[in-house]
Simulated scan of single mutants.
Amino acid sequence: MFDLMQAAVKPLINNTVTPLTLNWKLLDVAYELYLEAPQDSYPLISLKELSRKTGASMLECRNAIVEANRLGKFPNCSLES
Rank of each mutant, 00 (worst) to 15 (best):
L33E: 06
S51N: 02
E60D: 15
Q6K: 15
E60C: 09
F2N: 04
E67H: 09
T54H: 00
T54K: 00
P11N: 04
P75W: 07
N23M: 02
L20Y: 04
E36S: 09
L79D: 06
V9G: 00
K10P: 00
M5K: 13
K10E: 11
A30G: 13
A7W: 01
T21Y: 08
V66N: 10
D40G: 15
L79Y: 08
P38Q: 10
D40W: 06
A64N: 15
Q6V: 15
L44S: 06
W24V: 12
F2S: 05
L27N: 01
P43G: 09
L33I: 09
I13C: 06
L26D: 01
Y34P: 05
E67T: 15
M58N: 05
K53C: 01
E60K: 13
N15I: 00
C61T: 05
L27D: 02
A7Q: 13
S51Q: 03
K25A: 11
K10N: 05
P19W: 04
M1P: 11
V29Q: 11
L22W: 02
L59T: 11
V29I: 15
M58E: 15
A30L: 04
T21S: 13
W24C: 02
S51D: 02
C61V: 03
L4T: 12
M5Y: 12
M1T: 13
S78Q: 14
F2K: 09
K48V: 09
P11D: 06
P43D: 10
I65W: 05
R52I: 01
G72P: 06
A56T: 04
V17G: 01
A8V: 07
A37M: 05
R62A: 09
L59K: 10
T21C: 06
S57M: 07
R52V: 00
N23H: 09
A68V: 10
F2A: 13
E32F: 06
S81E: 14
D40L: 14
S81A: 13
P38E: 13
Y42H: 14
L12W: 08
F2Q: 10
Q6F: 12
F74N: 08
T54L: 03
I13S: 04
Y31M: 12
L12V: 15
F74Y: 09
M58F: 03
R62V: 01
W24M: 08
R70M: 07
P11W: 04
L79F: 10
L27V: 03
Y34V: 07
R52C: 00
P75C: 09
N63M: 12
Q6L: 14
V29P: 00
W24G: 00
S57F: 04
L4E: 14
R70W: 03
V9A: 08
K53Q: 15
R70G: 10
M58H: 03
D40M: 12
